[in-house]
Amino acid sequence: MKTISNILFAGLSWEERSFLGIKEDCKHFNQTKKVFLFVNISGSHDENQNKAKIQEYCKKKHIHFELVELNYEDPFFTWKRLESLVDGNHKSLKKPVVDISTIPREVIWTLIFFLRKYCTRVDCIYHSPKKYTKKWLSKEPKSPRLLLKHSGISEFNKPTAVLLITGFDEIRTRKLVDYYEPKLMVLGIQQGNQFENKVRNSKEKHLSAIKGQTDLKTFTIDAFSKDFGLSIINSEIKKLKEKYNIIACSQGPKPTSIALYKSQLSHSYVALCYVPSGDFSREYSFGIDRSYKYELDF
């Protein structure tokens, strides 16, 4: 069934799903009037081919298309740009849709933060690729950073617990431990063997990367369930609340970033954290497979 939406936010990427996803979005949301396409001015891969395809497609469908330059390495710049973008377009913001597939988590969260000023609901779409490259996906993780305005409440005399939805890169897991030196690390590990998840995101791999440095707990999550893993995240956060200052981070399947954001809205003492990567594979993903939608109510 088609749904009505007038504005679509998406991220330009070199991945095939950047264009294929937007096409799907516009088919699904049949009143799309405007596409805001985020382009990273500090990005290193050539995205011109996808940009041209998206432009051409929008022209054909009479959809207004606007490139929005952001700097993913400068969260303050991105913050200010998104603030002015949303403020400047708030009158036309009816049922906005965010295609999160190729937007970094920090940008997704920042965008939703500003959309909350004017909207009571945002639809988030995630297009899973057909496959990921068998080689590395991302590398060179940078220092973790807390999301502006979502840095939680840090109480004196409480140790830190980091709740992490793990991804394929165990070095990013270790980065969090090295940086925040938490008393407890709670790892949420995606279930199933899609994209060789059981090997590439195995519990053992993450545990061995941080062995001996912190207390550890694990739980299983399903990012592709109806609530994107929200209920299990909420339940884990509640367990930590009394004893710890909590930092929450998502590096696993993208939908968990939406679940984490939703969870933070009802647990404002939790700090949302982002670990940027310095490099992404040119062959990151191929094609487009299933799509997942989450209606984010405020």
């Binding site: 913050w79 950073r145 807390l146 502006l148 939680g152 840090s154 940086y179 925040y180 200052n245 700090a271």
Partner: peptide, 13 residues
């Protein structure tokens, strides 16, 4: 100083 309190960055705003 390695606590979430000291890592807050709202001062940027």
């Amino acid at each position: 100083c390695i606590t979430p309190l000291f890592h807050k960055r709202e001062y940027l705003l």
